[in-house]
Simulated assay, not measured.
Amino acid sequence: MDPYLLRKLNTERAARRAVIHLTDLGDGRDRVIREGDPVAGPLGEAVTGAFRSGRSVLAEVEDRKFFLNVHLPPARIVAIGAVHISQALAQMAGVAGFDITIIDPRTAFATEARFAGIDLRADWPDDVFSSMPLDRYSAMVAVTHDPKIDDPGLIAALEAGCFYVGALGSRKTHAKRVDRLTALGFDQAIIDSIRAPIGLDIGAATPAEIAVAILAEIIQSLRHRSLAATAPPDRASA
């Protein structure tokens, strides 16, 4: 690979941005495509499919063969609330290939005994995000039922453009949440992107079943996410 392209690839990966190293197997020419870059025609369709699946593929387009080497940042789940749902979700997330971080300032809940081997932060979300910023490959799950804890996570996720933002609670609880976010200047379309009630509608009743519904919705959102390069929402101009 050309040294310039190698540096570009490494820079994008270090910044947790998705890229494809595209090589024309006929003439050896290659280039790095960032997620959101326009690529026209059938090759563009192959690029889109590769970004969505996260799998490197060999594509034949108009009698030419291309190798698409896909580099996606590891998708991660950030759960606000060290509750029973999060305990089940933490175990399932690892099996599904997601990194997961649990955040809860309530030390009675955020204990190593309840989350052994899990990245657990017994701190306020704002303090955690100052050193672990969210991005387009982060999924936010807010499940404490406490606005003082959930809202900072939701706000950070909406501002970062996370591919999934979900919050536990009834319709009445969510209506109050919407009022708070509206008062902070978030556009209605951004607020409407929050999945609430959280999780796919599978009739989940137990914490473990709710965790299954949440994880399924996260996977669905990841594989159907928008690939457009969009700027994070600006509350000041909302």
Rank of each mutant, 00 (worst) to 15 (best):
A93Q: 04
R171C: 04
K65L: 14
P73N: 11
A50N: 06
H71A: 12
L168D: 03
G94N: 09
I118V: 15
D63P: 00
P42L: 13
P74H: 13
H84I: 07
V165Q: 03
R177Q: 11
I103Q: 04
S170V: 11
A122F: 03
I100S: 00
E112F: 00
I149C: 07
V83D: 02
Y164C: 06
A88V: 06
V143I: 14
E60G: 01
D146T: 09
S130T: 14
R55K: 14
G97A: 11
V178R: 12
G94M: 09
I102D: 00
Y164F: 15
G94W: 06
R52G: 04
D104C: 03
I77C: 00
P152W: 03
T107E: 14
R136Q: 12
S53H: 07
G81S: 08
P152R: 08
E112C: 00
V141Y: 02
T101P: 03
A46L: 00
P152M: 10
M140K: 01
S131K: 14
E112H: 00
D99I: 00
S56T: 12
N69Q: 14
A113S: 15
L43H: 08
F98M: 05
D146V: 13
Y164T: 07
T173Y: 03
T48G: 05
L72W: 00
R136C: 04
A96E: 01
W124S: 06
L58Y: 11
H84D: 15
L120W: 05
L120M: 12
A142F: 10
G153S: 12
A156K: 02
N69H: 13
D127S: 15
A156C: 10
R106I: 11
V61K: 03
Y164M: 08
A96Q: 04
S86C: 10
A82E: 02
